[in-house]
């Protein structure tokens, strides 16, 4: 049966820092590059140089604007498989092709058993699974299972391709089941969160929220005069400045 292990010895996963991700898509490209020849290869592209290309990717980087006006910010949001503890994709799989590994919690697809019914992609709220129209099977993130245990690679390279490629270290890899691991420490410190916890699938991957915005003088060490020139937030402008001359100028000009 598609039995999901009650406990896995490890909970390998990623922690993605939304505060420092710059949205360069290097993770997505490195993932595509590695996995085009990796465990679930090929990641087929259809009509790649044509007018309407279509292809399988494990990693998609969205960009959002969160908040309104001066307090809004750009958040780059890499989205990939979260290797849930209770993966709906595994439970709905009618063939047992989808499975969760008891030893490390990685969710994988056995391409030789998959019938391509696509039900797992319907069951996943995170859009982690993409159907390969060419192979007729479902493809998904393998957490680079063929890198992380690969003794042919330098030890420093035994991390998922996306983690290795990230130029700003916005992606971290480790055992989230071990409360003393560096990555668990990071999640605690930065109050990492689950995506859509109300679905009950208990994602292993965590997202670190953007740090509070630093709009105020002193937050950034910028001089007060520069701050007053910023029209973003009136309450931090000249009328609240500590310089009495500036306050007077502001009052005079506001009349």
């Amino acid at each position: 049966m598609t039995s999901v292990p009650h406990r896995t010895a490890k909970k390998l996963g990623l922690v993605i820092d939304l505060d420092i991700c710059v949205g360069c898509h290097a993770c997505a490209v490195a993932c595509k590059e590695w996995n085009s020849g990796g465990h679930m290869a090929p990641l087929t592209d259809e009509n790649p140089y044509g007018a309407d290309p279509l292809g399988v990717w494990f990693n998609r980087v969205h960009t959002y604007e969160a908040g309104v006006g001066g307090n809004s910010r750009t958040v780059h949001f890499p989205r990939s498989c979260l290797h849930c503890e209770k993966p709906a994709c595994v439970e709905v799989c009618p063939t047992g092709a989808s499975y969760k590994r008891a030893e490390d919690g990685i969710v994988l697809v056995n391409e030789d058993l998959c019938i391509g019914c696509k039900l797992c992609s319907w069951a996943c709220p995170y859009g982690a699974r993409e159907y390969d129209y060419d192979s007729g099977t479902m493809k998904k993130c393998t957490l680079c299972v063929d890198r992380i245990y690969n003794e042919n690679l330098e030890e420093a390279e035994r991390v998922p391709a996306c983690v290795s490629a990230c130029p700003v270290s916005a992606r971290h890899f480790g055992d989230l089941g071990d409360p003393n691991s560096d990555i668990s420490e990071l999640v605690r410190e930065r109050e990492g969160y689950d995506l859509m916890p109300e679905m009950g699938f208990k994602p292993v991957n965590k997202y670190l929220p953007p740090r509070p915005r630093r709009n105020k003088v002193g937050d950034t060490g910028a001089p007060a005069a520069l701050d007053s020139a910023a029209p973003l937030s009136a309450t931090h402008g000249a009328e609240t400045s500590s310089n009495p001359l500036l306050r007077w100028v502001d009052r005079a000009l506001s009349r």
């Binding site: 998609r60 980087v61 969160a66 309104v68 958040v75 969160y193």
Partner: peptide, 21 residues
């Protein structure tokens, strides 16, 4: 996105310009 604490969330840029699965 879990970004409700930041305020309303709008898509600024899609991850890809063409359709995907």
């Amino acid at each position: 996105t879990g970004l409700w604490s930041q305020g309303s969330v709008r898509q600024l840029e899609a991850p890809h310009v063409q359709d995907n699965y």
